[in-house]
Design a protein around this nucleic acid. Structure first.
Lengths: 76, 76
DNA sequence: ATAGTCCACGGACTATAGTATTCGTAGGAA
DNA sequence: TTCCTACGAATACTATAGTCCGTGGACTAT
């Protein structure tokens, strides 16, 4: 699994937990609807600022998402 | 302080701790020497893959760098 | 049977991450 | 001096992050 694929899975999980649609998350985080879709499908590599923007909207610490991503990648 | 400025400070700190020059870090992480310089001066926003690449070379967990960045930004 | 929500996916674009080259400076060493 | 290492900084380039337009399928509800 690539880093971006793992990030996509984690993003999708937390977004679903928050009850937000892709479009709602996109609007609140100031990103594009289709870009959230691309991220969740592991087709894009977010910048550090994008990671922070998304994490804040999801009420999570960026480091928590990254930690979970590390664990997910290690688990392979 | 912006996210990228904070990341630059942390990168510089850990790079100096590791005893690597910008050029040595660049070589080992497969990035450009001038780009490491740009990052440390807060002029660029690294992607998630770049963050992981650099952290690995510095023998640190990406989440640790991000955690420290959060704390640095909160401290303002 | 149709309207609304949610999302995957594509094409075409714009903004910026990241590369390559070069010049200038400062410090230490020979 | 002269040589070398390390770094900042400018310019110009290439690759890709991120936007904006749309289509269509699955599902729900009315």
């Amino acid at each position: 699994m690539t880093i971006e694929e793992g990030f996509g899975l984690i993003l999708k999980k937390y977004r679903n937990q928050s009850g937000l649609s892709q479009e709602a998350l996109a609007f609140k985080s100031g990103l594009d609807r289709t870009y959230i879709s691309l991220l969740e499908r592991g087709k894009r590599k977010p910048t550090i600022n994008t990671i922070f923007s998304i994490a804040i909207i999801l009420n999570e610490r960026p480091s928590k998402l990254i930690k979970e991503l590390e664990d997910l990648l290690d688990a392979v």
